[in-house]
Structure formats: C-alpha cells, structure tokens
Simulated assay, not measured.
Amino acid sequence: MTALQRPLRSVLYIPASRARALEKARNLNTDAIIFDLEDAVSPDEKHTARQVLARALDGGTYGERLKIVRINDMASQWGHADAIAVKNMQTDAILLPKVDSPDALDAISEVTGDTPLWAMMETPRGILNAAQIAAHPLCQGMVMGTNDLSKELGARFRGDRAPLMAGLGLCVLAAKANGVAIVDGVYNAFQDAEGLAVECAQGRDMGFDGKTLIHPAQLDVANAAFSPTDAEIDLAHRQIAAYDAALAGGQAVAVVDGRIVENLHVATAHETLAKVAAIAALSAE
C-alpha cells in the first residue's frame, strides 16, 4: 500500500527518546507516527534515542499505522549516524528536515538506499523547489514545517495563516502534481480544540491529506476533519448511481441535487468511498 492509499488524517510526532510514549503510541487512534530524533530529542540524548527507537520498532505491533522516522539534518553532527541507524529499523520511511532541493534526497539516499523518503518543507528555498523535491523518485510524502517556515519568513502569527498561504499552496500543488502525500503543519495550542478544528478545516479545504500533531489530545479533531462526512458519503453514492443510470440511458452526464455530474465528479466520488473503506480497515485493527 502506498502512502497515498493509506489514511493520513492524523500524523502524530512522538519523541524517539521516550520509551513510555513509544509504548503508548501502539494503541493510539493515529493514522501515522513520526518518531522524532530531531527537535524532540536533546543533544545529549541523541545516541540513546536511536537505541530506544530501534528496540520499540523491532517489537512491532504498530499495526497498519505508517511509521516514519525524522532524523537530524545531514549537515548536523547527528544526521549521518541517524541515517545509518534508521536504515536498519523497521520503519516505512525516513523524514528529512529542512529539505532545500532534491540534492538533499540524493545525498541521504547514498546512505539509506531505496528506503522511501519524506521531505520537511520548512525553508523558503525548499518551498521554491517544491516541485523538483516532490518529483524525486524516492519522495513519497511532504510535511509542512510551519513553525520553522514562519521563523524563516519573519512572518507574524495570524489565525488565518495568511502569511503562509503562498508556501502552503505551492507545496500542495507540487505534491498533487507528482502523486505524493502531503500533510499540514502542527497547531501549537494543543489544548485549543476549537482552533485546531478551524485550522484542520482550512487544510482539508486546501487539499492536504491530513495534519501533523504534537499531542494525542488532538487526534480526534484531526481524524474527524479529514474524514469524509456522512453528507459527502451519501452524495458520492448518489452521484455514482445517477451517472451509471445516465450512461445506461446513453447520456454522458447526470444531474444530482440540481448540479451536473460528469466523469470527473464520479472519479472523486469513488475516491471518497475508497478513503472511507481505508479508514474502516485501519480502525478495525
């Protein structure tokens, strides 16, 4: 199953150094986990964190959740050792921070071989090179690093994220053009469920596949926001039925709720139902 075929509504960061958190994550209702060796791990814990994470992943039982390990920047004193260690872990992908160009993916692949790669999109240069990064043959996903991007831009915080819209939009376009997954950045106020719901809705409307999260308390909000609604599911069924009936009658279009339904709408309807099925399969574990 490719990254795009999996539900990615909720993508939870877990510090790789915290054995208890790694154990609890096995039972959380998250679609994917980013095991973090970078920002969430202090410099004096870097070596130990690799060992703790390797033991946790070797233990299995994370089910069908997508397992991604974020390493340190390859230019840092820890990045190369991270890459060597993660290559041998039971993980689905490696997430590389601060990707400025596809050259960064080439460089890490010299160490990690054909292991799938995800790219953190969090620098102005990286945003401008988003299309080339997404087109890299090993790139399977992109993660928005909105905190770092805001810092690099010198942007002010706004609830509507207007200063980030250009960057977010460019990355969504790059991901969709190249058929890779893309998840939105974190919402820092982890106790503000209402604010999170607003930001999730904005990301869903833009085309993001899901949202990165910093606390388990955010899971239910993200899962709900990026799941098809009952109304969307009902409409999908009715569009497919109406279009099939139209084709049987020699017509190329149908009408549902006073709106034209063409083959592109039916393709979207089938994608909606496929997502529902994938979510149900993950939830049934």
Rank of each mutant, 00 (worst) to 15 (best):
R20K: 15
I108R: 01
V255M: 09
D244R: 11
P43T: 09
D234S: 14
I108F: 00
V52A: 03
R156V: 15
H215V: 09
L96A: 03
A201D: 12
T30P: 03
P228N: 07
S109P: 01
A175L: 12
G258A: 12
E232W: 05
F226S: 06
D220Y: 03
M142K: 06
D244V: 09
V86S: 03
F157I: 13
T2M: 08
V143P: 00
T123A: 01
M121P: 04
G203W: 02
G145F: 01
I240C: 07
E232R: 08
D58G: 15
V172A: 07
P137F: 00
V111D: 00
M144I: 13
A248R: 13
L173R: 14
L149M: 11
D192H: 10
D209Y: 09
P124L: 05
A225S: 08
W78C: 10
V221W: 00
A174K: 07
A181K: 07
M1P: 13
A131S: 14
G185N: 05
I71T: 07
D44L: 08
A16E: 05
D257Q: 14
N188S: 15
G154I: 12
H270F: 05
R26W: 08
R204C: 10
V86G: 00
M165G: 06
C139G: 00
Y243L: 13
T61S: 14
Q77Y: 10
A274Y: 02
A19M: 14
S17A: 15
P97C: 11
A281K: 13
L168I: 15
L273K: 03
L168H: 11
D148P: 09
T123E: 02
V111A: 04
H215G: 09
D114W: 10
V52Y: 00
D58P: 09
K24R: 15
M165I: 15
N27A: 15
G141M: 06
A224L: 09
E122M: 13
F190Y: 15
P124E: 03
L164R: 08
Y62M: 10
A75W: 09
G169Q: 12
A248N: 08
A242N: 07
M142H: 01
V69R: 02
